[in-house]
Amino acid sequence: MHPAFSVIFLTTLIGVGQGIFLALFTGQSYSAVELLPTQDSTRFYGNAAFIALGFLIGGLIASFFHLGHPERAWRAASQWRTSWLSREVIVLPIMMGLVFIYAIMHHFGWDSVLLTTDTGAQLSLTLIIATLGMFTTFALFICTGMVYACLKFLQEWHTPLTIINYTLFGTASGFILMTAFANTSAPDLMNFYGIWASIITLAVFVTRSASLIRNAQIKHKSTIQTAIGVRHSRIQQKSMGFMGGSVNTRDFFHHVSLIFMTKMKWIFMVLVFPVPLMLLWMGMETHSTALLFAAFVVQYVGLLAERWFFFAQANHPQNLYYQTV
């Protein structure tokens, strides 16, 4: 497939936003049961939630560049019964709404403790919103992943690993950014987020490696023989039926060399995993926001490369009909 930059930015940006929100939910629920010290509502939760909202809005804006008729985008909410894309279109604004509510509630301190247990654990209104937001966040990860994983003949995508990777990549990048953010406004939580960010990054290293190994061994079900229905081991295309290109030759081929593909794979494998982990560790040791932020930036750039590779690697069966491209 030809990687579209709008979709690359959409999936990576909302991933960061979702990851930040999951980090906030984790932080607040840990502090509700007094495993972590309570943080300032406005400076920490409020501001971080606004940052998450910013990433989500950025992703939404990027997605509009993919559409031929963005003015009709509202129609995309109508087919949620069958279309994962439609479900994503519904869940994303719901999540943005919940993050917005969560952000202003913390910003203005509109919160109240609804319940206190004997052990001192407190159930507050914002934690309920955060819990709803957490479920919506996972729903959004599932929708985003399923948009790709549900296309069964794109065999590189048609695996549960697609959803797992989308979830873990987004969460990892969000947690790394939150580590940097916590270093400035909630130093108590810096190590907590940093360690979780490392664990999630290591986990996604395992799952992404698994999908790379899987995809390297894929035996494609469709062949030129099934595509045109001729049983002969030697079939060559002599003419694709037109002289110039077409949408079919531009949208479904990545148009780069195999060497370039291999390079991209190693670039993202280095930029997403070892470099950010090292910067993260150094930043946590030295309490340097710059190093922690650099870890996020490097990983985000790596994620752009990862998403590019994810699209480029998918081999669409329609390409069997265009072998002279």
């Binding site: 993919h66 559409l67 031929g68 009709r72 129609r75 948009v147 003949f153 469709s222 079919n248």
Partner: peptide, 14 residues
């Protein structure tokens, strides 16, 4: 149609 191209991805025949 919003021109999102998703249906063309979903068609194995192109």
């Amino acid at each position: 149609c919003i021109g999102c191209r998703y249906c063309s991805w979903a068609c194995p025949y192109g």
